[in-house]
Amino acid sequence: MGEQKKEAVGTPGGRRIADIILECRNLWKIYGKIVAVKDVSLEVKEGDIKLIFGPSGSGKSTLARCLAMLTTPTKGDVFLMGECLTKPGVDLNKARAKIGFVFQHIWLFHHLSALGNIELGLRRVLKLPKNEAREQAIQALKEVKMEEWANHFPAQLSGGQQQRVGIARALAMSPEIIILDEPTSALDPELTGEVIDTLRDLAKKGTTMLVISHEMPFAREVADEMIFLDEGMIVERGQPELFFTKPSSERARRFMARLIKLTRRE
């Protein structure tokens, strides 16, 4: 039975299924007349860093939220560690706990301290005892260099500090993968650096990540694959060098040119 299941979700080419952490196949998300995500298939393997980019409104956030099952796809399937999440009867709470999510506009819980934000999931979802949850939460804060701010409320922190707590909150749950939806785009330019540094640290540790970002130097440095999304579709995908030297699609070429020009000007 177990063997059969493995075969059923295995990809052609004989790669071991256990390597694939998160995957979607022919995913669609339609809002009324708007097709936000159009027939997208992708997979993230263990230790992979995938970078998704594309114009505003191209469906990046929607795709990310569908992958984390924070919104239900209209069509298509999502698999986490080989388990299909898009069929009825799946314990989605359990699945979501294994997928870390960092939001563009951060969305810390306003009424809880930095520490409280992290402890909530540890205590109520992973059901850790109080002192253990505290220990793990502090450890997570250390990883993003925020342990000195443990008892501050979100409103008392800078945007960059808040986002680092947001990352720690996702990280503390020991997820299989972390999805980050434009983690720096809501921040003032001078605050993006500290968050990018945090992400670099995660990359070095081999964290499996799917990052939506337009921080091109960072992308070039850490991404295993870049995926260019436009109008809900994957227009082009490949290694970073491909995009920085000779993107084959006209749309990707134009978008890259604009991004690089913007980065230079700053």
Partner: peptide, 16 residues
């Protein structure tokens, strides 16, 4: 809705 989604992303149930 944002706080709700953030909570659900951690695996909290709707009631939690």
């Amino acid at each position: 809705e944002e706080q709700m989604m953030a909570a659900r992303s951690l695996g909290l149930s709707r009631l939690q």
